[in-house]
Design a protein around this nucleic acid. Structure first.
Length: 146
DNA sequence: TTTCTAACA
DNA sequence: TGTTAGAA
């Protein structure tokens, strides 16, 4: 069993996550509402954050504080991810997909009623995962289509 | 006690 | 961003 998998274990309740990240609970909820992050939900609908989730949020915080871009700005950038190419969906699926034409929010923030994404968990999708670390985004983009 | 959603300041 | 309502 590799230890890295522990990083994906959703073990932090929202209060702990907020303390570790030094941000407020409402802010954490806001990021989720805006589609920037998809925390795991427990049986009782409680949010649970993994170490990777926390790192992803750190990436968002850096963008907002250091790069001075807004939540809407981040959403717009994430909306430009060529997800159809990354997951290799068909031209038909792509043309029928809302997130292909919509540039206001990331693909995983959409409800996919049809196509391959309809049956997939966005939280587990490489499109979502690959853009979780600030340091690896450029590399990810460069490798698209290879 | 803690967190949830939703609405509002 | 923070606060508040009522419910779980």
């Amino acid at each position: 069993m590799d230890l890295n998998k522990l990083d994906d274990k959703p073990i932090f309740p929202i209060r702990t996550a907020a303390e570790l990240l030094k941000i407020s609970i409402p802010t954490l909820r806001l990021y989720e509402k805006e589609g920037l992050i998809i925390p795991h939900k427990t049986n009782s609908n409680q949010r649970a954050y993994s170490k990777h989730d926390l790192e992803r949020i750190e990436c968002i915080r850096k963008s907002i504080k250091k790069s001075k871009i807004s939540i809407n700005g981040i959403k717009a950038m994430l909306a430009m991810i060529p997800c159809w190419q990354i997951i290799g969906c068909s031209d038909l699926d792509r043309d029928n997909c809302i997130s292909y034409s919509d540039s206001s929010k990331p693909c995983w923030a959409h409800k996919h009623d049809n196509g391959v994404c309809a049956t997939n968990e966005c939280r587990e999708c490489t499109v979502y995962k690959d853009f979780s670390e600030c340091s690896k985004v450029k590399e990810t983009i460069q490798n698209i289509g290879k």
